[in-house]
């Protein structure tokens, strides 16, 4: 590592692209290989951006759930990226493997509408309970405050 790259830090992570059916077992395998902590889980909406680089055998889907794992013992990171189709945004919950994903899965459900099967309390966490829609989706309008322009006052 040169001095320059060190100043930025080394953020290299082992990347895995499991299918939805392999997802839980891949996570479980990581856990047994010393990745003790699930640091982060978030969902990304790739609507309108088709050309992203993925391994050849991975079929890109609209949603992607990204799980960042951390190994405290070997000081390394791993990133698991699962493709989740738009018409069936369902993924098994990994709360039994990593109890810490509780709030993160709820957040991904709330803001992106990914359903995690097996989560004990999959309710909205940030938005109000009766909110409709999932705000972080790309097709969810950002909302604007309408501005009423008034005519300039005429000459008196």
């Amino acid at each position: 590592m040169t001095a320059e790259t060190r100043s930025r830090g080394s953020w290299k992570a082992e990347m895995t692209f499991p299918s939805r059916s392999e997802y839980s077992s891949v996570i479980e395998e990581y856990k047994s290989h010393g990745y003790e902590m699930c640091v982060d889980l978030c969902a990304v909406d790739y609507l309108g951006y088709e050309g992203r680089t993925l391994p050849v055998d991975v079929v890109p889907q609209r949603f992607e759930v990204v799980v960042n794992l951390l190994s405290l013992s070997s000081k390394s990171r791993a990133r698991v990226r699962v493709q989740v189709p738009e018409d069936d945004p369902v993924l098994p919950s990994i709360i039994e493997i990593y109890p810490g994903v509780d709030a993160m899965e709820r957040e991904a459900f709330d803001l992106m509408g990914i359903e995690f099967l097996g989560h004990p309390d999959l309710t909205r966490i940030l938005m109000p309970e009766d909110w409709e829609g999932h705000p972080l989706r790309k097709d969810y309008g950002i909302g604007r405050v309408p501005i009423q322009f008034k005519e300039a006052p005429g000459p008196r």
Binding site: D40, V44, Y46, Y49, D102, A103, M104
Partner: peptide, 14 residues
């Protein structure tokens, strides 16, 4: 396209 912040307080609150 997406910026996600892994907020320590959010997770620690669990």
């Amino acid at each position: 396209l997406r910026m996600h912040i892994r907020a320590p307080s959010f997770v620690n609150l669990q």
